[in-house]
Write a protein that binds this DNA or RNA. Structure first.
Lengths: 152, 152
DNA sequence: CCCCATTCGTTGCCTCTGCAACCAATAGCA
DNA sequence: TGCTATTGGTTGCAGAGGCAACGAATGGGG
């Protein structure tokens, strides 16, 4: 077998490289880990969520989310509020400072995504999106229950 | 921004899922880590390499390779032989036991790859391959020098 | 109403791995 | 030949994250 031609290998190389490119922004410039970055973005778009909703498809382990949220709370970027209807879970929301970071970092991240995609025609981008969806769906069937490997 | 539509995120999810699917084979069944698996495969195809050649494009950090090789040597799957022409580096090769594992695991891994790709037409597979190449090339430009995040 | 199963979230433990410092060997150059 | 720069590889250290066990809260029978 030729590793360099093996799809899972190539996907991992590509994913790793894009993660590195992104990390230059959210890690080096804002001190965010990948999980923290994902929490910020999710709360940025949904306003108010629980920790469980943060990993809807098992993309992040719940302990990973827990620690990311704890770190963000410590930095004053995220605020917790108990859910009185179900005191097992807590509502999460960005603080003004957290939102400020989101507002700053999201456009930069999107720009990186755009620069990545800029080598593809808009037709190719559509195609890629569809292919990724198909493969993801299939990979979900082949992977154990819900697991993932994570990273960026 | 919508995380679920963000290309780097989707690539990471997909790569993570495929890694999990593969790990079922090489990790659970053969006790190989991702780096160890890559070393085995590389030596399986090239017969004899140095540790440095194992990470040609900076996909794995050299310390990662070093530890993977050390572990494989300890298990008697890889053998080192000093390069007398340049005693900084060492030639690596699979032992018979190492090759046996390679012969066993490679077809299974390829089968997983096939099953992943089975949801795409052969035309789509070609297209995907080309798109991945384009994106990887571009990502290499955007990522810092040579870094990566690794995994599977 | 009680008991068991389930769910949300946290934490201890352990492994993995990136980074940087380091050693040994080599190469380049005067 | 000597002196410095570079390269292959290893290792100490620290951070990150998966796993599994746990505690707290809830839900679903009987």
């Amino acid at each position: 077998m030729v590793l360099e031609e093996f799809l899972p290998y190539r996907l991992n190389v590509l994913a790793g490289l894009t993660s590195s490119a992104l990390a230059q922004i959210y890690a080096e410039r804002y001190g965010l880990s990948i999980p923290a970055w994902r929490v910020i973005v999710t709360l940025g778009q949904y306003e108010c969520r629980t920790a469980r909703d943060m990993a809807p498809d098992g993309v992040m382990h719940k302990s990973t989310v827990s620690r990311a949220v704890a770190a963000l709370e410590k930095r004053g970027l995220v605020k917790r509020r108990p859910n009185l209807d179900d005191r097992r879970e807590e509502w999460l929301a960005l603080t003004p400072q957290g939102r400020a970071i989101y507002e700053a970092v999201a456009p930069e991240a999107l720009a990186v995504g755009e620069r990545l995609l800029s080598v593809l025609t808009s037709q190719e981008q559509k195609t890629l999106s569809a292919l990724i969806d198909k493969l993801t769906q299939q990979a979900r069937l082949l992977a154990p229950q819900d697991a993932e490997g994570d990273e960026a």
